[in-house]
């Protein structure tokens, strides 16, 4: 799993979830009972789907892709030309569907990904989207005032770095390739991958060396 993402923002906002809890727990249980009694769903298959997202699909997959791009210029070029094809050539990353597009941060341009209309997110390489990605605050502000959104994450870019926002309005999915931090020359791919955070692959974080 990628390293700790938000040490500077260690607050929790569960009120919304808390107030829904008992009502939703009961309604969801009732629906599952109905669907399984009717033979539409197999509860064991549901268990397995949940387990997949809890244990297997996560930002470690994206981090491996980024780390490979940092150490292998030929892979980097292929990734930027054909995200899905390049990602799928890495045997240790779970299969990535079509339409993955990798976009690279540079000193000149910083990329930020959002879905203003719903919550489209590259699940296969980053896992389930975090609550903030699905929030009205992020979805509304990312396209009009991205620098203030980055400030909410404690990220301040140089004034001369231009920001490019990618609104995920179709089935294409975007993976940001963050800049490799200074002082990591000679690091192994595995060690580099451990530095790559989920947020850095959405564009709300930067990768830093310890």
């Amino acid at each position: 799993m990628a390293a700790e993402d938000h040490s500077a923002h260690d607050h929790h906002h569960h009120d919304q979830h808390g107030s829904e809890l008992s009502e939703m727990q009961a309604r969801v249980r009732a629906l599952e009972t109905i669907l399984s009694e009717k033979g539409y769903v197999d509860p064991a298959a549901l268990d397995r789907i949940i387990e997949t997202y809890e244990t297997e699909v996560g930002p470690h997959n994206g981090a491996r892709i980024v780390a490979r791009a940092w150490v292998d210029p030929e892979f980097r070029a292929r990734l930027l030309a054909d995200g899905s094809g390049a990602a799928n050539s890495l045997g240790h990353v779970s299969p990535v569907g079509s339409h993955l597009i990798a976009v690279e941060n540079t000193p000149e341009q910083h990329n930020l990904v959002v879905c203003t209309l719903c919550s489209c997110y590259p699940w296969e390489v980053l896992g389930l989207p975090p609550v903030w990605y699905k929030s009205a605050a992020f979805r509304s502000r990312a396209v009009i005032d991205p620098r203030s959104v980055l400030a909410d994450f404690g990220v301040a870019l140089p004034a001369e770095t231009k920001i490019r926002v990618w609104d995920s309005t179709a089935e294409t999915r975007f993976l940001v390739v963050p800049m490799r931090p200074e002082g990591t020359q000679g690091w192994s791919e595995e060690r580099l991958a451990a530095l790559v955070t989920r947020d850095s692959m959405v564009g709300t974080g930067l990768v830093t060396a310890p």
Binding site: H12, R29, S135
Partner: peptide, 22 residues
């Protein structure tokens, strides 16, 4: 403001996972 949560779990309640799976 956007409010990132440190060490966010995949699901905040058991029912969320059941909804995703259904």
């Amino acid at each position: 403001p956007v409010e990132p949560e440190a060490n966010e779990p995949p699901f905040h309640a058991e029912w969320e996972g059941r909804v995703l799976a259904m």
